[in-house]
Design a protein around this nucleic acid. Structure first.
Length: 277
DNA sequence: CCCCATGTTCGACA
DNA sequence: GTGTCGAACATGGG
């Protein structure tokens, strides 16, 4: 589920406990969630430490405990972070729960594509510092996008937008939203977007969708956002129409189409997104 | 029962 | 080495 802004939203759920001590950790997860860090080791490293801070980048989060313990989280397809009352009874897929004196912080993931990583050291782990420049940063220029498209010239732009090495945090619905706003057909070969007017449009829309999502979904700059994702997304986005039966394009009023492009189900508006290079 | 799902990774192959 | 594609992972909902 979680893409860029949704990840930031979840990070904030846990970040309310910044400065608080983790009194207890409860681990209840299959080994695959913990990958390289055995559950017991994670528990031991974090218990008794103070949550110092956290960051989100792309689809990952990094929480820092005490001086030198770092917990990396990837939410996979269905992971989420929530706050709960101390008395809460962990449900089947609540794999990892941190208890402060005041409340419980829950990591749940029923599909178990999520991942949890432990790192100990004075500095953040290397995988974190090596993540691609955020699409909202100054380093994410039109030229960078154009060069990347040139290298993936034959691949459909939809598939290229999903590549985390260049478009960190963009997932299936953001990619569809971007192409819809840019009026680009999702099957367009990326090479057609290596330069020119449509490259400029694509670059602009990537940043626009990311920025809008951070504001509307993550609540950056607005303190209260509803919890349900669909309630946070404005009606005039493609998002709220894309899986709806009989969904229609907010621009044309014509039916939306669903097709597998670049290995993923893609929703688009044929009459609106006619440009294909 | 079948198909589908907001993701990543790995192996096969051109 | 590079790039592309499909399968696999695990689970629940329609």
């Amino acid at each position: 589920m979680p893409e860029l802004a949704e990840v930031e939203f979840f990070r904030r759920q846990w970040d309310v406990a910044r400065g608080k001590r983790v009194e207890r950790v409860r681990v209840h997860a299959p080994a695959r969630i913990f990958r390289d860090a055995p559950a017991e080791m994670v528990k031991e490293a974090i218990e008794g430490k103070i949550l110092r801070g956290s960051e989100a980048q792309a689809k990952q989060m990094l929480f820092r405990f005490g001086e030198d313990v770092w917990l990396g989280l990837h939410l996979g397809m269905a992971g989420r972070l929530e706050r709960a009352a101390l008395e809460m009874v962990p449900a089947k897929h609540d794999h990892f729960v941190l208890y402060t004196a005041a409340e419980a912080l829950v990591f749940s993931d029923y599909r178990m594509f999520g991942k949890l990583e432990l790192h100990c050291g004075a500095n953040a782990p290397e995988w974190w510092t090596r993540l691609a420049p955020p699409v909202l940063s100054d380093a994410f220029t039109r030229e960078v996008v154009g060069a990347f498209c040139a290298r993936r010239a034959k691949a459909p732009i939809k598939a290229v937008l999903l590549m985390q090495e260049r478009f960190p945090g963009i997932g299936n619905w953001m990619a569809d939203e971007i192409l819809w706003r840019a009026r680009i057909h999702p099957a367009t070969p990326a090479g057609a977007l290596a330069k020119g007017r449509k490259l400029a449009e694509l670059h602009r829309r990537i940043r626009e969708v990311a920025g809008d999502a951070m504001r509307e979904i993550a609540g950056v700059g607005s303190p209260t956002v509803p919890h349900a994702l669909s309630e946070r997304v404005p009606e005039d986005w493609l998002f709220n129409h894309r899986w709806r039966d009989g969904g229609t394009c907010p621009q044309t009023g014509q039916p939306l189409v669903r097709e597998e492009i670049g290995g993923r189900t893609t929703c688009f508006s044929p009459a609106w997104q006619r440009w294909r290079g």
